[in-house]
Design a protein around this nucleic acid. Structure first.
Length: 288
DNA sequence: CAACCGCCCTGGGTGC
DNA sequence: TGCACCCAGGGCGGTT
């Protein structure tokens, strides 16, 4: 599934392939793909047609393209969303949800999403700390790849939460862009069990954890963001990075790369957490 | 207000 | 072979 590094690769692709182009036509094939656009498909299309894309931006896993109208097309890829740039006339993808055609008759922008957890909407923008953001993104914290990310403030926010450290790590108002995979990888690197209380971490340990999350995402971006020709193949999450580089996530029963003990899987928030029983021991009093 | 929980959705995989 | 069931995931709305 697209994590922050993949979303950043998609953003760069949009920047290079659709920014500056004039929108001629929009087709919505599945209402669920624009369910967050409350006025519906006709209104969605009307707010794009006749305008041009001016900039492609991102915060966390939210991605948006500014419109010359002053509004923005906001996208979340969810679990299976893809942005494809395809020549006019290329066969429709099985799960094609939205098509944006351009006045220059060049390649189309297609939103393809098998599981329809993702979606598009047209949003007004709100000014937050000198940055204009689509309104639904206004409450989301900066992600670790943001040039203005404040590590000290993020450490403080993390340690302020009175909950398990992994819940705090996944809270997009603390730090954005960290999903289940990167949370498990960062916790493994920092040798922390996911159920440790966030407010029990030292400043140094919390900082180590956030640095680990940043490092993993940097590596993934370098691994997946090198080839733009391959971009639209890679954005489906099959970049190959995960096959080779995951230490904990999805590795149940595999030896811990550090100590060799088999990685364990534990239920967490109706999904799974993976950790090393030796490197990431349970906190005192922990029980499933 | 902060924390928490259930729900949204689809298709690939598995077990009977 | 076919069917029932499980699982993956982020964010949101409602409740405590």
């Amino acid at each position: 599934m697209p994590e922050l590094p993949e979303v950043e690769v998609v953003r760069r692709g949009l920047r290079d392939h659709v920014v500056g182009r004039h929108i001629a036509e929009v087709d919505v094939f599945h209402p669920r793909a624009i369910r967050r656009h409350v006025p519906g498909a006709v209104d969605f299309a009307a707010r794009l047609v006749g305008h041009s894309f001016t900039e492609a931006r991102r915060r966390g896993k939210y991605l948006w393209v500014d419109l010359s109208s002053g509004e923005a097309v906001l996208a979340h890829l969810g679990m299976s969303g893809q942005m494809l740039v395809q020549p006019v006339g290329a066969p429709d993808e099985k799960h094609l949800r939205v098509r944006v055609s351009f006045a220059d008759d060049g390649p189309e922008l297609r939103f393809v999403d098998q599981r329809t957890f993702g979606g598009l909407s047209v949003e007004g923008v709100t000014e937050v700390d000198g940055v204009s953001l689509p309104t639904p993104v206004a409450h989301i914290a900066r992600d670790p790849m943001d040039p203005d990310f404040d590590p000290v403030a993020a450490v403080a926010a993390l340690r302020r939460r009175r909950t398990e450290v992994k819940r705090a790590l996944l809270d997009q108002t603390v730090v954005s862009g960290i999903g289940n995979i990167y949370a498990d990888e960062a916790l493994w690197l920092a040798r922390l069990h996911w159920a440790r209380p966030a407010d029990g971490l030292s400043r140094a340990k919390a900082a180590e954890l956030l640095t680990a999350a940043t490092d993993v995402m940097d590596q993934a971006l370098r691994a997946g963001g090198t080839s733009f020709d391959a971009l639209y193949v890679n954005v489906n999450g099959q970049s190959g990075y995960f096959d080779r580089s995951l230490n904990a996530y999805g590795q149940e029963g595999e030896p811990c790369p550090r100590c060799g003990r088999p990685i364990r899987r534990e239920p967490f928030m109706n999904r799974s957490s993976f950790s090393c029983p030796r490197c990431q021991p349970h906190p005192p009093g922990f029980q499933l």
